[in-house]
Amino acid sequence: MEKLIYEFDGGAPVKATQGPAIVGVVGSGNLEVLVEPENLGGRCVVEILTAARGFGDIWKAVLEDFFARHKLADLRISINDVGATPAVVSLRLDQAVESFLGGAS
C-alpha cells in the first residue's frame, strides 16, 4: 500500500450546503472516490491510498488534468484504489464531482 497526497491552489469555491458524495467500489481495477466540502483555505486536497506502489507521477498527471477541468476549492477528495487505470480514475473523479455538485450522495 502507498499513501499519496496532492494539493491544488487557485480553484473557485463551490456552493456551500452540499453533503459528501461517494462513487466507485474498492474492487480490482477500480477505486472509490469520496468528495467532502471542508474549509481548506481555498485548497483542494487529494489523499490516495493505493494497492499499486510507484505510480505517483501518473497520479499527479491525472489529478492535474482533473483540477484543470474543474478548478474546485475547499474540497477534500479521498481515494481508495485497487490498481485502476488512469482512464478509470479520471472517469470516477468526474462522476464524483458530478454527484457532489448534483447533491446526490
Binding site: M1, I22, V26, E36, T50, N80, D81, S105
Partner: peptide, 27 residues
C-alpha cells in the same frame, strides 16, 4: 438516510494491517 456513512471512515483496520485496500463503509 445512511448511518455511519463513508465520511465517518469506519473502515477495517485488519485489512490495512495485511496491506489490503479497505473501503470507507467496509462494504
Amino acid at each position: 438516510h445512511e448511518f455511519l456513512p463513508p465520511s465517518e471512515r469506519v473502515a477495517s483496520p485488519h485489512l490495512l494491517q495485511l496491506d489490503t485496500p479497505a473501503a470507507f463503509d467496509d462494504g
